[in-house]
Computed example of a mutant assay.
Amino acid sequence: MHFLSPILEEYIAGHSQEEPQILQELTRETHLKVVRPRMLTGHFQGRVLSLLSKIIRPNTILEIGTYTGYSAICLAEGLPYDGKLHTVDKNEELYEIQRRYFNKSGFGGKIIQHTGDALEIIPKLEVVFDLVFIDAEKMDYPAYFEAVLKKTKSGSIILSDNVLWSGKVVEPLDPKDKTTKVVLDYNRQLKEDARVETVLLPIRDGLTLSRVR
């Protein structure tokens, strides 16, 4: 489902901050060499993540779902000189392209890569995170949320991507569609969970912003 017409999407992007050259290069290489390039965060949402990070001014960031590194670079733009971003992805084949662009972006020294199952890695991180971005396997969103809550503090921000799930959240539910059911339950959970304050933003495929109480 397209929430906005292409011409309106073009207008929005054209009246937002320009996409950095390094991210344009990463986008081109991802489309040329990596499967499922639509998973890229993209210009508009990337600038949203960058600005949110700069507003929040986190010392520590956790990202679940690195893909080729686009969103990590955007989030890293808001880190202080001694800040760190931990990013987790299960696909070890993407490690090299991630590292190459992290280094080219100038944020290489601030970004720590982890390869493997996020639910096994997160409990081992001895870090309290100011900002978390969840953008990985949708079936595991509830488990990711519980895992990261234990690594946050009052005032920490948790961002959850793809929560509109291409509009399927407002369509009749196919009983066989387990992923959409999980997304629906997750959205309901965030709204009703007393541990966080939540607002769902209609940005791209849906971005939920939750503040830990």
Rank of each mutant, 00 (worst) to 15 (best):
M1P: 15
L4V: 14
L4C: 13
S5M: 14
E9G: 11
E9T: 13
E9Y: 12
I12V: 15
I12L: 15
A13G: 15
G14K: 10
Q17Y: 03
Q17N: 15
P20E: 04
Q21C: 04
I22H: 00
L23Y: 04
E25Y: 01
L26R: 05
E29T: 09
E29R: 11
H31M: 06
H31Y: 07
L32N: 06
K33P: 01
R38D: 10
L40F: 06
Q45M: 10
Q45G: 04
L51S: 09
L52K: 03
I56V: 15
N59R: 14
T60R: 12
I61P: 03
I61N: 05
L62H: 04
E63W: 04
I64L: 07
G65D: 02
G65L: 01
Y67I: 03
T68M: 00
T68S: 03
T68K: 02
T68N: 02
G69P: 01
Y70A: 00
A72Q: 04
I73R: 00
C74F: 08
L75K: 01
L79C: 09
P80Y: 08
P80T: 12
G83M: 10
H86M: 12
D89I: 05
K90P: 04
N91D: 15
N91W: 06
E96A: 13
I97K: 01
Q98Y: 06
R99C: 13
R99L: 11
R100Y: 10
Y101H: 05
Y101G: 02
K104E: 06
I112H: 15
G116C: 11
E120Y: 05
I121S: 06
L125R: 08
E126L: 06
V127Y: 10
V132C: 12
F133E: 00
D135G: 04
A136K: 03
E137M: 07
A143N: 13
F145S: 09
F145H: 12
F145E: 03
A147Y: 05
G155E: 09
S156M: 01
S156R: 02
S160W: 06
S160N: 07
S160G: 12
S160T: 14
D161Q: 06
D161F: 08
N162R: 07
V163C: 11
V163F: 10
L164V: 07
L164K: 08
L164F: 14
G167Q: 09
G167N: 10
G167I: 02
V170D: 14
P172T: 12
D174Y: 11
D174E: 13
D174F: 09
D174G: 12
P175S: 11
P175K: 09
K176T: 09
D177S: 11
T179W: 07
T179Q: 13
T179E: 14
T180K: 09
T180F: 03
V183T: 09
V183D: 01
V183I: 15
L190A: 05
K191L: 12
D193V: 07
A194D: 11
R195D: 07
E197K: 13
E197R: 13
I203P: 01
I203W: 00
G206L: 03
L207W: 04
L207Y: 07
T208K: 05
L209K: 01
R211T: 10
V212M: 08
